[in-house]
Amino acid sequence: MRVFVAGGTGVLGQRLVPQLVARGHEVTATTTGAGKLGVLAGLGAQGVVMDGLDAVSVGEAVAAARPDVIVHQMTGISRAHAGKPDLKHFDRWSVPTIRLRTEGTDHLLAAAEATGVPHFVAQGYANWNGIGTDGWVKTEEDPLDLHEGTAAHPAMEALRHVEEVVAAAGGAVLRYGAFYGPGATDDQVELVRKRQFPLIGAGTGYASWVHLDDAASATVLAVEQKARGVFNIVDDEPAPASAWLPLLASCAGAKPPMRVPVWLARLLAGEVVVTMMTEGRAFSNAKAKRELGWEPRYPSWRQGFAEGLN
């Protein structure tokens, strides 16, 4: 197939494009600047410069590529776009990604409709943001928690927008867990090594992880099978922070994380971080395994962390 990957030079895009090429697909992948066109060429894709927030730029790029499927992997979480991660002010830090998940998604869907692209796959998110009732592990039938009244709310609304409009278009949304792998955990590991990533309270909040290569392989399956609906793309072992953070520190060659009380963490890091670390709800991958036939190479973050975070 002719596959159009919007966001081809992101951490996931750079793992996805080679997998698509290896499967015999003709890939056009986008980047925001001409300086990265060589990266895309090295991955085997036809590179194109595109501004995901400019409807004309998106329309022209899609029309020129004439794809059979569009894969939306555009985010704005890199330091180049969002600056240093600032979870205390999550609403401000996540603005570039919010815009790409609202305006950018709408531009891509409009271009798909205008040019007759029959299938659409978009990036979602399923890490700690499951609804905070009835258990710690959520399926696709459970709604995402919109975290109303917190700094996470605008970002959660953007995720809901993606799921609603892509579903209406008959496409697939892949709710990826927390990424690890080449370039994905650099900021976290830096904080862990500086002992600036503490356990908060008892560390009871759950999270779901996925290696970049596993996220990419699930995406290839969704493309090839013309999947529809929502899929949680996470590994087999949802886990509380009290389990995964100490192992992350050990694998990074760092001292064990310090512990801080909830009240102090709320002052220093903000409500979103406290919620992640103490109340987060993780996700089940049963549907993706059952319907896509997906089997992660790294079924547990324990194995993946041990074999190398990068």
Rank of each mutant, 00 (worst) to 15 (best):
Glu140Lys: 10
Glu141Asn: 09
Glu141Leu: 12
Asp142Gly: 07
Asp142Trp: 12
Asp142Glu: 14
Asp142Ala: 15
Asp142Ser: 08
Pro143Ser: 09
Pro143Val: 08
Pro143Asp: 09
Pro143Lys: 00
Leu144Phe: 12
Leu144Ser: 06
Leu144Val: 12
Leu144Arg: 15
Asp145Glu: 11
Asp145Phe: 07
Asp145Leu: 04
Leu146Cys: 10
Leu146Ser: 11
Leu146Glu: 05
His147Thr: 08
His147Phe: 15
His147Ser: 14
His147Glu: 12
Glu148Leu: 03
Glu148Ile: 02
Glu148Val: 01
Glu148Ser: 07
Gly149Asp: 15
Gly149Met: 12
Gly149His: 09
Gly149Thr: 14
Gly149Leu: 09
Gly149Arg: 03
Gly149Tyr: 13
Thr150Ile: 07
Thr150His: 14
Thr150Asp: 13
Thr150Val: 06
Thr150Glu: 13
Thr150Ala: 11
Thr150Cys: 02
Thr150Met: 11
Ala151Tyr: 09
Ala151Gln: 13
Ala151Ile: 04
Ala151Ser: 13
Ala151Val: 13
Ala152Asp: 00
Ala152Tyr: 03
Ala152Arg: 06
Ala152Met: 14
His153Arg: 03
His153Asp: 08
His153Thr: 04
His153Ser: 12
His153Gly: 03
Pro154Asn: 01
Pro154Trp: 03
Pro154Arg: 01
Pro154Lys: 06
Pro154Cys: 12
Pro154Tyr: 07
Pro154Val: 04
Pro154Phe: 02
Ala155Phe: 14
Ala155Tyr: 14
Ala155Asp: 08
Met156Arg: 14
Met156Glu: 02
Met156Val: 01
Glu157Cys: 14
Glu157Tyr: 00
Glu157Asp: 05
Glu157Pro: 01
Glu157Thr: 04
Ala158Phe: 13
Ala158Glu: 00
Ala158Ile: 11
Leu159Asp: 09
Leu159Gln: 06
Leu159Trp: 05
Leu159Phe: 10
Leu159Thr: 02
Arg160Phe: 01
Arg160Ile: 05
His161Val: 08
His161Met: 14
His161Ile: 10
His161Cys: 03
His161Ser: 09
Val162Cys: 06
Val162Leu: 02
Val162Phe: 11
Val162Glu: 00
Val162Ala: 06
Val162Tyr: 03
Val162His: 03
Val162Asp: 02
Glu163Cys: 12
Glu163Leu: 10
Glu163Asn: 06
Glu163Val: 01
Glu164Phe: 11
Glu164Pro: 00
Glu164Ser: 11
Glu164His: 09
Glu164Gly: 00
Val165Ala: 11
Val165Gln: 00
Val165Cys: 01
Val166Cys: 03
Val166His: 11
Val166Tyr: 05
Val166Thr: 06
Ala167Met: 01
Ala167Arg: 15
Ala167Gln: 10
Ala168Phe: 01
Ala168Gln: 09
Ala168Arg: 15
Ala168Gly: 03
Ala168Ser: 11
Ala169Ile: 14
Ala169Tyr: 04
Ala169Trp: 10
Ala169Lys: 12
Ala169Glu: 04
Gly170Val: 07
Gly170Cys: 03
Gly171Leu: 08
Gly171Asp: 02
Ala172Trp: 07
Ala172Arg: 05
Ala172Met: 06
Ala172Gln: 08
Ala172Gly: 03
Val173Ala: 07
Val173Arg: 03
Val173Asn: 02
Val173Pro: 11
Val173Lys: 00
Val173Thr: 15
Val173Gln: 07
Val173Trp: 00
Val173Gly: 04
Leu174Ile: 09
Leu174Trp: 10
Leu174Thr: 12
Leu174Glu: 14
Leu174Pro: 04
Leu174Phe: 09
Leu174Gly: 10
Leu174Tyr: 09
Arg175His: 15
Tyr176Gly: 08
Tyr176Lys: 09
